[in-house]
Design a protein around this nucleic acid. Sequence first.
DNA 1: GTGAAAGCGCTAACAC
DNA 2: GTGTTAGCGCTTTCAC
Lengths: 350, 350
Amino acid sequence: MEAMTTSAVHTPRGPVTRKDVARYAGVSTAVVSYVVNGGPKKVAPATEAKVQDAIRILGYRPNAAARALKLGSSETIGLIIPDNTNPFFSLLAHAVEDAAAELGYALLLTNSDGNLTKERRNIRNLASRQVDGVVLASVLFEPDLAALESAEIPAVLLNHGGKSPGFNSVGVDLAAGARMAVDHLIGHGHTNIALAMGTNTGHDYDLREEGWLQALAAAGLPEGPIVRGPFSREGGYAVGRRLLASADRPTAVFASSDMQAIGILRAIHEAGLNVPGDIALTSFDGAAEAEYSWPALTTVEQPVRVMAEAAVGALLGARRGEPAAHRTFPTELRVRQSCGCPAQASSATP
Amino acid sequence: MEAMTTSAVHTPRGPVTRKDVARYAGVSTAVVSYVVNGGPKKVAPATEAKVQDAIRILGYRPNAAARALKLGSSETIGLIIPDNTNPFFSLLAHAVEDAAAELGYALLLTNSDGNLTKERRNIRNLASRQVDGVVLASVLFEPDLAALESAEIPAVLLNHGGKSPGFNSVGVDLAAGARMAVDHLIGHGHTNIALAMGTNTGHDYDLREEGWLQALAAAGLPEGPIVRGPFSREGGYAVGRRLLASADRPTAVFASSDMQAIGILRAIHEAGLNVPGDIALTSFDGAAEAEYSWPALTTVEQPVRVMAEAAVGALLGARRGEPAAHRTFPTELRVRQSCGCPAQASSATP
DNA sequence: GTGAAAGCGCTAACAC
DNA sequence: GTGTTAGCGCTTTCAC
């Protein structure tokens, strides 16, 4: 007698597949697909209910690998950044994750550690994983996207000048942002304004440097000293010490990233000097950390969330055949105290 | 005549598959597999060379989805954390990514934003994506792992007391770490030591609180004030202000995370008070940011990289049938200046 | 040492 | 509205 086989149906061995659901609900596997995906065919309400019950009771979850194989899409996007430990990139990663999740995509995170070999390996790895797109903050100005191209995987470059036609990119106007920060310092009456510039592996001329130059020139001010070092707290610290030791110590400095500014701040404190009294400081990025340094940093904020949404949008747009484009977003000056502006009266009451 | 069909072979339409490689190399698809995977069968050196050439020339990259479907493993692990923007978690994410990449696994990053609904959704999502394991820093003390269990996906809980037998977990001895931090403050002569405790969604009694209590009791000191707030800079700031406004203002405070300490530091600075002169401070986690605050934070450092490696190891071990276990790692006190210790002479010379 | 072929779970023609 | 079925690209058993 077959009467007891229902118990076997209740507990299929191993993971539950669409076949188990179909059997349990007494329908074909196609119908299960239609229900799960809401199409492409319509299903009678009664049937749908039976299937939904079966899914719930059996605890069925579609196998994403099978789906990816069939569809040629993993519903996943890849992110390649130098270091997700850097506040700017961690914010970006979070924003990209949110934007992707919103559309049902998951995020594969990879760090290149500013290392070209790793970046290449990550690109290849993501390509073989059938990601539907890659957001890349490259070490290089012209990254090697061959692996992605041959797999027809769209990519979007981050904070890239957009000089490579044919590639999607999103970024901010670095020069304009830098000008804002330097102009603000000029507005405070400074005439000897240094630049602490971050150094990248292969990038060419950074437009923040140009912005600094432009602002100085426009105000008829002489070029201040330039110090260069890594985009990191440590890099900023080293650069800050050099600046302090120089003969014509500047009265203000524009740092190309918040992390560098944080390091510079430490160097200044250690020297027993005061910010902004002895040296004023502005920087770039708008990291959360910049709001809690002492004094709080006046910084040029990048609209990271908007940029992340645009990046994910561009990726998915590219899949639908939209042409590559460069999208530039405006930055905003977050005025705090490191520049010399007075502290706002705190609205919080203890 | 078929002579010219080679040109068609050279440029297979669409993505290159293992079949194209086989045809080009004049072998069967099985042999291509053997070569790509280094087994399970041996291949003659000459044949192998032909296949490797074909792979290179055609630019073949294995399809991970097909492989995942066949093998039942995506060679991917999932990470669920409250917020990858928090330095502790961003460091963890980086370390997990490294440990996973080392073994050929990729990392699917998800943020729960401290939100139970999102955490659940992320768990289910990762389960359906056939991840080979999940590292979970849960909002709850007893997360709902049903989706993972039914899919037979191992999980490892992070910084979980290890009270749930049957679950893998990795963490540090929170009480011992807290004791270290508080003992150090006691060593500086403080007798009124407050606790700034972070609040989690569903976690029960946090052992850092117990450690603080134990240290005080062991020294015969009275219980200091406790203030509670979110594990964030903002939370710390609010809590700091409350502490400063209280009648018997403490002369020292132990904060349960670096982020809170950063916020407290701001509150103290704004009040025109001095750290460590007026109020000494120690905290917990060992974030990079703690080294660059002013003054630099004395903090209990968690060995994040080691923990990440252990977590990934446990996941893969579980796949091989190893029993679940709780691994506890030692913390270390990074002595800097917020506690009252003198600054080390800096070894760097500008 | 090499090849043929079954089948992983799913989608979407196409037939009814 | 529902069912049948052909593959997506890969791994691996089994035959040779």
